[in-house]
Design a protein around this nucleic acid. Structure first.
Lengths: 157, 157
DNA sequence: GCATAACTGAAAACGGTTGTCAACAAGGGG
DNA sequence: CCCCTTGTTGACAACCGTTTTCAGTTATGC
């Protein structure tokens, strides 16, 4: 199979870090998937690429990638953090059905931020915007298009 | 001292739950503070009001209040969850200096959401927006205006 | 006051994340 | 090509926040 050597891998090297098999495995999984992945999931899938991969290394790799801005942390509601490749925008749209994750440009947000800034006197430096909904595919199937959700815990009256 | 019996306390009763001393303590701390508090902090401060309060009860109370919509979960960046009293709006503006938390109306957000909806085909059901910056007071002092970001108050105060 | 069921607190269980440390391997130099 | 240096790794355990368990307690209705 071909290893296209992800752009992130080159960025890693450029930043003076070694390009190890473990890191490459994590990067490949991350690039292949278009959804937020938990460290655990990353670990499991990564081992399919590089068997001796350890969970601890996944955590460290994720921390490194996050530091370099190559990956982004996503808050999946109450769930644990998930990570996804970082694109131009930092805003995520999460499908509650299939957990697919897309990024979108925040066109109107700047104005909103400016407005809040003017009204409150705060000097705003960061913003986190995450939208949740159903993607077209999941709407079509009348619910989760993916029959394998990670948390079917209807713990509520 | 006077116990104004927070509105949330009445809501609790109205929902058919008992108004216990432990819950009252948590509510009082929550109402007194205008910042997001972690369960641990809530526990420490709550014990100043009601000594036998247990951490477990804080968690349970928080879960109950969240379920009733009386409290809201805040993601403090990489930190653990924090909780704050829920107001009309679900959007928070967090000061990185003093950790003060204010809510603000999301006037322009609906349009932004509608725009994203139209562009992506997703049916958006939820949104999370958190802004971070420096409040006027912290800007004035050139940094954190409060030298004690969030330290536990074992006694007094 | 009494009964009852909701509620509580202590401790333990649990699961995710981080620290430790000897072994390993990526990358540069000889 | 091999060696060396040192960043990196992986197994294990420590750590910490959260949840479960369970017997004792307390709020509320009678």
């Amino acid at each position: 199979m071909d290893n296209p050597l992800p752009a992130a891998a080159r960025a890693l090297r450029a930043a003076g870090h070694r390009l190890t098999r473990a890191r490459l495995a994590v990067l490949q999984v991350l690039e292949a998937e278009h959804a937020g992945l938990s460290p655990q999931e990353l670990y499991e899938r990564g081992r399919a690429i590089y068997a001796p991969l350890g969970l601890v290394t996944v955590y460290r790799t994720l921390a490194l990638l996050d530091e370099l801005g190559l990956v982004r942390r996503v808050h999946s509601d109450q769930e644990r953090h998930a990570y996804a490749c970082a694109g131009a925008d930092r805003h995520h749209l999460l499908c509650s059905g299939c957990h697919r994750l897309v990024e979108f440009p925040c066109q109107g947000l700047d104005e909103l931020v400016a407005s809040v800034q003017a009204r409150t006197g705060y000097r705003i430096t960061e913003h986190l915007l995450e939208l949740t909904g159903l993607c077209p595919a999941c709407q079509a199937t009348g619910g989760p298009a993916d029959p394998t959700p990670h948390h079917p815990a209807p713990r509520g009256a």
